[in-house]
């Protein structure tokens, strides 16, 4: 539900990096979004188009890499991927795992610019 503010923050990050490198146009932006972040993919794409409309990233493509949830199971001593809707339970031994290893990401990874 906060996709627009996420998109605006993304744009800040992109603009900052572009300014630093003297880049004047951005054609694509790569981001990683964790499944626990509550970000809806379509809403973010839509918000990105709005947020970037009058910027150096106008018309750019937002490429979203979805990051599934992973926890560290203390009992198995291994990283595990809980099934959606089961909380953060280890799918193998059933132990609850408080330690989220992945799935909270809200990261800008890279941008594509004219060479």
């Amino acid at each position: 539900m906060h996709e627009l503010s996420v998109a605006l923050t993304l744009l800040d990050g992109v603009s900052e990096a572009a300014l630093r490198d003297g880049i004047e146009r951005v054609t694509a932006v790569h981001v990683r979004i964790g499944a626990l972040s509550g970000i809806a993919r379509d809403a973010l794409l839509f918000s990105w188009d709005m947020a970037s409309a009058e910027s150096i990233a106008a018309g750019s493509e937002l490429r979203i890499e979805d990051v599934p949830v992973a926890v560290f199971c203390e009992r198995c001593k291994r990283e595990r991927s809980p099934a959606p809707g089961t909380g953060l339970l280890c799918p193998v031994c059933g132990a609850a795992s408080p330690t989220i290893v992945r799935g909270r990401e809200l990261q800008i990874v890279a941008m594509e610019v004219p060479a």
């Binding site: 990050g13 992109v14 990096a17 490198d21 880049i23 054609t27 694509a28 990261q107 800008i108 990874v109 890279a110 941008m111 594509e112 610019v113 004219p114 060479a115």
Partner: peptide, 9 residues
């Protein structure tokens, strides 16, 4: 031609 610039933020 495009190039990729890493950001990691």
């Amino acid at each position: 031609k495009l190039r990729v610039v890493e950001i990691q933020a």
